[in-house]
Design a protein around this nucleic acid. Structure first.
Length: 454
DNA sequence: GCATGATCATGC
DNA sequence: GCATGATCATGC
C-alpha cells in the first residue's frame, strides 16, 4: 500500500530518525544476529515510512519523485570519515536503457532526487546499535552532473558496442556500474552481443560517497580542478586542454617555469599539480577523490622501454589466503580504481613531458591474467610453499614472476627484508612464520604497451 | 638488458 | 611508525 507524502512530512520523518538506532526504530523486532544486508533499508521503508517492501522498479515516494537510501559511513583511525560502501542505485536494463538519452533514462527517472540517510558503521558493534546521524535530500550538484552524464554515456556506449560483459566500474568516474547478484546465474542478455553479461546496477562509487559524507557530515571540502562547468566536455578532455601546452617541455624547463626548486622524487607530482593549477596534491582534489583516480608517474627510457614495474600496496598473507577472487582486495582495487599515467620520456639525460593517459584494468585482463597470478599466489601461501631458495641471505620465492604472467607478478615491497607480515602456515622449507611484505606489480612490459602512443 | 630481491624517500 | 610511490642493486 503506497502513501502520498508532502516534502515537509518527509522532512519530519527523516529528521526524527536522527539520533536513533536501528533497534529503536524497529522496536527490536529484528534480533541483532538476524540483520542482513537488506535490513537497514527495510527498517526505513517498513518501520519508518510504513509501506510494504518496495522491490518493484518504481520510486519509493512516487508523488515526490524521491528514492530513499540508507547508507553507512565509518570513522577512520585518523578521524576522517569514509563511506563504507558504494550507493547502489537501479539495476541496468541492458535491453532498454540504451534507447534513451540521459534525461529520459530510467536512471534519471529513479535517481534525480534521493533522500539519503546516513548511519555510522562501527566494527564489533551489534547492528541494531548502529546510530543514524545525518540525512540529505540529494540532488546531483551542478558541478558533478556533467561528469555523471558523461559516465552514463560511457556505460551506454559499451552496451551499444555489444560489450556489456566488458563493463568495469573503473570505466567511469562518479557513476559506476557495479555488479549486483553474486553468482553466474545473475547474468543477463545484452542487445548487441550473444555473450551474457553480469547483472550490474548504476551506483555512486564509494569514493564519491566518501567525498559526499565528508562534505556534508564533517563539513570538509577539497580543492577543485574543474572551474568551468560544461557537460559537453569530458573530464579527460578538460585535463588534456590544461596540459597540452606543456607537452614537449623538459622537466628542467617546467621546474623553471613553475618556480620549483625541489629535486625530490615527487617533483613530477608537483609539476602536474602546477599544470592543472592546483595548490595541493592532484590526488587530493575533489574530482580525484570522488572518482578514485590515482596518479602514477611513468618514465620511459630513451630506447622506448620502461625500466620499472609498477607497485601497489602490499598484501596481508593471512587475509589473502582466506579470500575468494570476487571479493578479494586485488579485484576490488582494479575493478574500482582509475589511474592517471603521467608520461615522461628520456631525451639527452633530461625527461620530456609527453602526456597523460587515463587507464583502468580491462575486465577481461582482470579476470584472466590477474586472476591467474592471484590464484597462484594464494596457492603458494596456502600450501606453505613460499620460499624457493635462500642464496647469500637473499630469499627467492615461488610467487608468480614476470615470466609466468604477461600482466603482473609478485615481488617484495617493504622497507627492508625484515619488514614482514605473518604467514598463515609456516613455510615448508624454512619453517618461517613470517615473510617480507610483498605486493602485486604490473609488469613494465605491460605498462609499456599501454602508454606506447603517449 | 632483464628479472627479481631489496630498499629509499616522502608525507601523514 | 607506517603506507605508499619510486627506484636501486645484483646476478645471470
Amino acid at each position: 500500500m503506497k502513501k502520498n507524502y508532502t516534502f515537509s512530512e518527509v522532512r519530519n520523518i527523516v529528521e526524527n530518525m536522527i539520533g536513533k538506532t536501528f533497534g529503536e526504530l524497529n522496536n527490536y523486532k529484528i534480533s541483532s544476529e538476524n540483520y542482513n544486508k537488506g535490513s537497514f533499508g527495510f527498517i526505513m521503508e517498513e518501520d519508518v515510512f510504513k509501506y510494504g517492501k518496495n522491490t518493484k522498479s518504481e520510486l519509493d515516494i512516487a508523488n515526490l519523485n524521491i528514492e530513499l537510501k540508507m547508507t553507512p559511513y565509518k570513522i577512520n583511525k585518523n578521524g576522517t570519515l569514509s563511506a563504507k560502501e558504494r550507493l547502489v542505485l537501479n539495476i541496468i536494463n541492458y535491453m532498454t536503457e540504451y534507447k534513451n538519452d540521459f534525461y529520459d533514462s530510467h536512471f534519471w527517472f529513479k535517481n534525480k532526487l534521493i533522500q539519503i540517510v546516513w548511519y555510522r558503521y562501527e566494527d564489533n558493534k551489534p547492528k541494531s546499535d548502529f546510530l543514524i546521524t545525518d540525512e540529505l535530500l540529494f540532488k546531483f550538484p551542478k558541478e558533478d552532473l556533467p561528469i555523471i552524464i558523461n559516465d552514463w554515456y560511457t556505460i551506454i556506449n559499451k552496451i551499444k558496442l555489444g560489450l556489456a560483459h566488458e563493463i568495469s566500474e573503473a570505466d567511469t568516474m562518479y557513476l559506476g556500474a557495479c555488479t549486483k547478484g553474486e553468482n553466474s546465474k545473475s547474468e543477463r542478455e545484452q542487445p548487441f552481443s550473444d555473450i551474457r553479461a553480469k547483472q550490474r546496477a548504476f551506483s555512486l562509487k564509494s569514493s564519491y560517497m566518501t567525498q559526499l559524507v565528508r562534505n556534508h557530515v564533517s563539513n570538509s571540502s577539497a580543492e577543485r580542478i574543474i572551474t568551468d562547468i560544461d557537460e559537453n566536455i569530458s573530464f579527460e578532455q578538460i585535463i588534456e586542454n590544461k596540459i597540452k601546452k606543456y607537452r614537449g617541455k623538459s622537466v628542467i624547463e617546467l621546474k623553471k617555469l613553475f618556480g620549483i626548486n625541489s629535486n625530490s622524487k615527487n617533483v613530477n607530482e608537483l609539476i602536474v599539480a602546477r599544470m592543472l593549477n592546483i595548490k595541493g596534491k592532484v590526488a587530493q582534489t575533489d574530482e580525484f577523490i570522488k572518482a578514485n583516480i590515482i596518479p602514477k608517474t611513468i618514465r620511459i627510457n630513451s630506447n622506448g622501454s620502461i625500466k620499472e614495474s609498477m607497485s601497489f600496496p602490499s598484501f596481508d598473507f593471512i587475509k589473502i589466503s582466506k579470500e575468494k577472487w570476487y571479493n578479494s582486495e586485488l579485484y576490488e582495487m582494479f575493478s574500482t580504481t582509475k589511474y592517471m599515467f603521467v608520461v615522461f620520456r628520456e631525451v639527452n639525460n633530461d625527461y620530456i613531458f609527453s602526456g597523460i593517459k587515463f587507464w583502468n584494468m580491462p575486465n577481461s585482463t582482470l579476470n584472466n591474467e590477474v586472476k591467474d597470478a592471484w590464484s597462484k599466489t594464494v596457492e603458494v601461501i596456502k600450501n606453505g610453499n613460499v620460499v624457493k631458495d635462500i642464496i647469500g641471505g637473499k630469499k627467492f620465492s615461488n610467487f608468480p614472476g614476470m615470466a609466468d604472467n604477461s600482466v603482473c607478478h609478485v615481488r617484495p615491497h617493504a622497507r627492508n627484508a625484515n619488514d614482514v607480515n605473518t604467514l598463515p602456515i609456516p613455510d615448508n622449507k624454512t619453517g618461517m612464520t613470517e615473510y617480507t611484505k610483498h605486493c602485486f606489480w604490473l609488469n613494465s612490459s605491460f605498462i609499456s604497451e599501454i602508454v606506447k602512443d603517449i
